[in-house]
Design a protein around this nucleic acid. Sequence first.
DNA 1: GCCTACATGTAAATAGTTACATGATTGA
DNA 2: TCAATCATGTAACTATTTACATGTAGGC
Lengths: 197, 197
Amino acid sequence: MLELAILGLLKERPMHGYELKKRLSYMLGHFWTVSYGSLYPALKRLEKSGSIERAYSIKEKTRNRNVFRITPRGEKAFMNMLGEEINDTALADTEKFDLRMAFFQYLEPEKRLHLLEMRRNYLTEQLAKFKAYRSVNKDEDLYRTGLLKHKFNQTKSDIRWLDRLMAHERETIRKRDGAAGKRNIEVETAEGQVSAV
Amino acid sequence: MLELAILGLLKERPMHGYELKKRLSYMLGHFWTVSYGSLYPALKRLEKSGSIERAYSIKEKTRNRNVFRITPRGEKAFMNMLGEEINDTALADTEKFDLRMAFFQYLEPEKRLHLLEMRRNYLTEQLAKFKAYRSVNKDEDLYRTGLLKHKFNQTKSDIRWLDRLMAHERETIRKRDGAAGKRNIEVETAEGQVSAV
DNA sequence: GCCTACATGTAAATAGTTACATGATTGA
DNA sequence: TCAATCATGTAACTATTTACATGTAGGC
């Protein structure tokens, strides 16, 4: 989880540990934070595995910084983690899923759509379970009931949001394929039989 | 966290591990789940520390169950954990806070109000930080922006919900004190000077 | 008779946090 | 000059999951 976040941020530009921590807090802090005690060892691990490397190039090292940049190996590792076939835990864990979403720009529309659908299904199942539980168990304490109701509504809001995102992905795919089809026809008209791109 | 949940559930009635796990999943599963690998060792710890004890009384043990009940010592431990002076992590960690709320019935209105206020302040601060960040950093990726916006709105919805709960607690306190005041006056009229309850 | 759900547990791994330790740089 | 923030790191601890291991009871 942490390594995915680090690689994703270093993909944008080289940074040192302290800067990474700040950016993680500001950017993702609304759903996830890290401590130095976990950040620095992670950087060490990533360097050891060759996913990142030191980059002092830009007259750095005046201040006692260790600036890191992502390597081609790291780019691959990042894409693997990001596109990885998703399991139950990754779907159930909101923070994990959100972190993935924070780097959605790096995935193809199909992959994004697939992940969004999986998450939507998971949340819908949760709602169904909740409803089933509620219909059996009516005598629950008021605070607990209120809490679950609030969670229930937030989950419904999550699903509506996912629906909007999914519609957007479908539109992206439709447009792209429409344009490709059109291009093909034009090419065909001009040069005869040409296989699709 | 887990121990608080176990004690809170056993306060209602004795249960065995398997049953606890099911109830935890159904009741709190929408924001928190546990595995057996963490549940059973926790039960062992709680038994060892004298917070829970085996209760085979009701012709159990036909099936291979270990039914536990909470002890007076456990009740105390539970109340300590629940009412404990809250630190930053407990405020920031939504799951932790939600778990506390699931057992709000066992706290006095003042304590509930205090916890709700602390949480409200924390969330409000988060929103302010987010706004500050947004105003500086405009060039962010679309998916990330969308994600943070959604989180932002959910946090606002959380705050509105907390406000409703706080109003309810204030009303509870007002009613109670009003009634107490009235009672005192009546007592005074009938029997002369009597100190407040 | 066999499959599903019931029921308990352990060992190893995972993914962190907390507390500590140290020192440099900058601005008021 | 002194406080705040920048900057890096380690050791010990915490809380948990995953994978494994084992066996029982009830229903079809």
